[in-house]
Write a protein that binds this DNA or RNA. Sequence first.
DNA 1: CGTAGGACCTGTTGGC
DNA 2: TGCCAACAGGTCCTAC
Length: 277
Amino acid sequence: MPELPEVEVTRRSFAAAIEGATVLQARLGKPLRWPLGLASECLLGARVGAVSRRGKYLWLPLSRPKASGGLLLHLGMSGSLAFSPGLADAPAGAHDHFDLQTDRGLLRLTDPRRFGAVVWSEAIDADPAAKLLGGLGMEPFDLRFDGTHLHAGLSGRRVAVKLALLAGDIVVGAGNIYACEALFLAGIDPRLAAAKLSRPRAERLAQAVRAVLAQALEAGGTTLRDFKDAHGVAGSFQMQARVYGREGQPCLTCATPIKRIVQGQRSTFFCPQCQKR
DNA sequence: CGTAGGACCTGTTGGC
DNA sequence: TGCCAACAGGTCCTAC
């Protein structure tokens, strides 16, 4: 579910409501990707700060009288967060693996596949958060993210440009859907070797990544199956996807059937006519 | 260092 | 209708 737009839409949907809240209780369900790294009782009484995002991670600052820090949250493939004002009314379901009950409402992580994570860190720039965020590339809406940056990042890489985008160490945020869409917008064949992308085409691609993520943000993200923001609102970008999930259907530009291939064990959708090597 | 592949999980869908 | 294989929004870790 969650690429940068979904994570950011989620953040915006509950950040204001939870800021300043006091933690009353924390509950863990089944194990997620990593252990919390702290006894959940230690979170009691903590004050929630301003929720921020880095890549596809959310950072929930928690200040306690003595030790402060925060929770680094990741939604994995199937995770979503819900924030319901007041005290918990709905009992935790089979896939609800983290609850943070505050005096303003309940923040609940639902994640059937459990690739997501909730990890305590003393600071966002201290381990384990620093280790997880350390290898991340530039934020796509950072003004310094441009063709020059992208071109430099792609240089020396023999992998396909799509896989280089997905790796997230040059620019963060584009997952499988938006990487496919951005390459279509830029007219670039996803199989092209990263280092072979010319400077001008890197500029086009950088702009395309930005444009696609901005459009998706505007649309409230993509809801393929179960993505909802923290208030249960679904996204609608799937209606605007040009190639993702459209194998065999006519390209909206040239009517050539959209092709599906596998790269790095994941599906890639592209138009063999509009996207060139 | 770059790359390829496996690993982690559960649920849904499509073909026979 | 039932069963099984394929597939799903991510990314970390290991081995070459």
